[in-house]
Design a protein around this nucleic acid. Structure first.
Lengths: 342, 342
DNA sequence: ATGAAAGCGCTAACAT
DNA sequence: ATGTTAGCGCTTTCAT
């Protein structure tokens, strides 16, 4: 077997506690013995064992990453890329990520993720909407938590969020810059904070440009913002507001559905009706015309989340800091390029 | 703090070793006491601590996943998807994955990944080509290893590999089925086993169809099979064999480069020259015409790797089993659809 | 400034 | 069938 702290102590002719103090950079060790110990460590190729350390220090060096099954297995790798951002940055910061998924209808009686039960993580990052009961249970164990792309309706937690309001404004402003005035909004359930915020951005952009808001240009009665509901919402919108000349959909999935509807009805995109989405998913490039959108830097969300977590771990005071990750306008063919109206 | 084995023992009125035996499903415990212990465990919400367990059992429940930096940060998420396959399957099998990257020119004196030094993994999966010295060092520590999409030139290790020969045959046969006879091969360094195998598949398909092999239809002097070398290789090929009517490129990157060259020279694809790649990367869909290719199921590679690893861990005998993951022909617009020549 | 000793929570011989 | 005991390799008082 490989060297242990005992071997080092023997070789450096000190006690094991001295070795431990050296390892942990305790300043109350004289320089001479410190050097002697360090030398022994080097010669024996010693490195402290995680398990032994963890048993007494209650630190694991691991961070848990939890999301619901449907978020991870969805075709569009949105959360996957957040996870990869976290994974990337964790390596830089000398942590490991343990990932797990939970069922969306986690009950208070459900079994907690194994790494929680085993006390094998120092903190937990929740990605996307997760069940409230899960959050409660984990918080009750005193495990530090950070949210990314979601914040529970009640409570005040550290979180990394998309700057949805600015994104909504950017999207809408872009349509306005293209000379559009009769801009519709396609949304899902307003309970979803990001959808509501994007809608707010839409409203603010209209206001800023002195364009009157028209209630009948908004469809938000679709429960889940996916492709199918985008298709249906587009149909509804055209029924009540046939004169719209542009669409801001609350996400790309809905925008893609809407685009499909428009194509089937032989409406010209972008000339007759321009359309912009939100998220920048890969499917945007596989449609004709390719979809303009607001790009969300998913990796950046993950990076910020782990940084925030580690900051919390090191400060060990609660700091419910919110971080807003900026977004970016991506102009493609589904919106007119800027016209003389600008 | 939460319950420990002592608390359970006290409550069930047994010794801690009895509790331990129950936890580990040791059959030499009477059913009655087993039930009593189980009851206490339930009532106290007890779950054994990973660190304490690991300290004595020398098991961590973690698997390391190692690849080189350039493989993980490359734009095309090939290895990322292998990793995700591993991550997915690990959850099913109750393991966690610790990921790390290493520098491609790892020296025998370089620092090993932290999870190795800390003895925080039970085994290691190597993805893609990794430095030989790294492999040596990790093997020397008696840590079980599994390779995925790579096998070291010397030695005999358990490995999960792409069925490159079949893939090469599939690609070439498809071109032949399209009525092509003067089929070129664009490759990189033959030292790379997968490139060599794809080339072998090409040769075998020709032979099987009684198409004479022509040496001047092959370009393999590009060191690294990327887009730029695909472009250059195409130029070279056309110079020495201007009559080729189809191209099998050893991977999509080269195929994409070749396609670009052909377009710049206003050669019609697929009519005049058909072209097929290998890997099925996302960029294939963003070009015009979209690239036909041989699809590699990257997630499947990762899944098989972790399964093999866990099989090894549970059997604890060496079994240098090789698993070949099948590939699939994806017909898109860069090759003719099947003609009457078939 | 350093050492002795207790203990973290568990497993596994070895007893009984 | 169950209990006693000795560690696993480290950190952390508490002495000296």
């Amino acid at each position: 077997m490989s060297a242990t702290i005992k071997d080092v102590a023997k070789r450096a002719k000190v006690s094991i506690s001295t070795v431990s103090l050296v390892i942990n950079n305790n300043p109350r060790i004289s320089e001479s013995t410190r050097q002697r110990v360090l030398k022994a460590i080097r010669e024996l190729n010693y490195y402290p064992r995680r398990a032994a350390r963890g048993l007494v220090s209650h630190k694991t060096g691991n961070i848990g990453f939890i999301l619901t099954e449907d978020h991870f297995s969805r075709h569009e790798p949105f959360y996957t890329r957040i996870f990869l951002g976290t994974e990337f940055e964790a390596r830089e910061l000398e942590y490991y990520i343990l990932l797990t998924t939970v069922h969306p209808d986690f009950k208070p009686t459900s079994r907690l993720p194994r790494f929680i039960l085993e006390r094998n993580v120092d903190g937990v990052i929740f990605a996307g909407k997760v069940p409230d009961s899960l959050i409660q249970l984990i918080e009750a164990r005193g495990i530090p938590v950070v949210f990314v792309d979601y914040h529970p309706p009640r409570g005040n937690y550290p979180a990394v969020l998309i700057d949805n309001i600015s994104g909504g404004m950017l999207a809408t402003q872009h349509l306005i810059d293209c000379g559009r005035r009769r801009i519709g909004f396609l949304g899902g359930d307003f309970d979803h904070p990001s959808i509501y915020d994007r809608y707010q951005g839409y409203r603010q952009a209209l206001e800023r440009n002195h364009i009157p808001f028209e209630d009948n240009r908004v469809v938000t009665d679709e429960p889940y913002p996916d492709r199918i509901s985008g298709y249906q919402a587009m149909e509804k919108l055209l029924a009540k507001a046939p004169d719209v000349d542009a669409i801001f959909a609350c996400n790309d999935a809905m925008a893609l559905g809407a685009l499909q509807y428009l194509k089937e009805k032989h409406r010209n995109v972008p000339e007759e009706i321009s359309i912009i989405g939100f998220d920048d998913v890969e499917a945007d490039l596989t449609v004709d015309p390719r979809l303009s959108t607001i790009r969300v830097n998913k990796e950046e969300l993950g990076i910020q989340a782990i940084r925030l977590m580690i900051e919390i771990l090191n400060s060990d005071k609660k700091l419910p800091r919110k971080i807003l990750v900026p977004v970016e306008l991506i102009e493609r063919e589904s919106t007119c390029s800027i016209t003389e109206n600008r």
